[in-house]
């Protein structure tokens, strides 16, 4: 066992777990942050995606030990006190979430994408989300959700 310390969604955590335990399982089992989902367990579907020091990672491929000292953000940390993040609001309005199982990972991937490209082209959106598989939507509603979120963020920046 190893004592591992990191912050999740702004909260400091210290846990004693096997060092090879998947970060996904640490989040879900030890910290009860079940918004992070397991779809494939091999880094293919992105349902377990989180932000790790600001970068998108698949938490099923990160051993707990490597999270020592990291700053993590899961879907539970995207909203603030029950107020939806604009990305979440856009997914809600534009039909970006159907069954919802890919949605947490998809929203974090979008977050990461818009950090890098505030005005993403369609090609950038397609590439940025290609690691997050969705079987319900055919992705079109998700693309619209992302575009609306980008547009709103830009209008907000323009105003301020």
């Amino acid at each position: 066992m190893s004592v591992i310390q990191f912050s999740v969604n702004g909260k400091r955590e210290s846990i004693d777990v096997p060092p090879m335990k998947r970060l996904l399982d640490v989040l879900r089992e030890d910290l009860h942050l079940t918004g992070t989902k397991e779809g494939c367990g091999e880094g293919e579907c992105g349902a377990c995606a989180i932000l790790f020091d600001g970068e998108l990672v698949n938490s099923c491929l990160v051993p707990a030990l490597q999270a020592n000292g990291a700053r993590l953000c899961t879907i539970e940390g995207v909203s603030t006190e029950g107020h939806l993040h604009p990305i979440q609001q856009c997914f809600l309005e534009k039909g970006g979430a159907q069954c919802g199982i890919c949605t947490p990972g998809m929203i974090l991937a979008t977050h990461h994408l818009l950090d890098k490209y505030p005005n993403p082209t369609m090609a950038q959106i397609q590439e940025g989300l290609a690691g997050n598989l969705c079987r319900c939507t055919g992705y079109m509603r998700i693309f619209e959700s992302v575009q609306q979120a980008a547009q709103q963020a830009n209008e907000l920046t323009a105003k301020s």
Partner: peptide, 12 residues
Amino acid sequence: ASWTGSVANQNR
């Protein structure tokens, strides 16, 4: 590098 896995895997 750009087509090695997904963005999340490229980050690791």
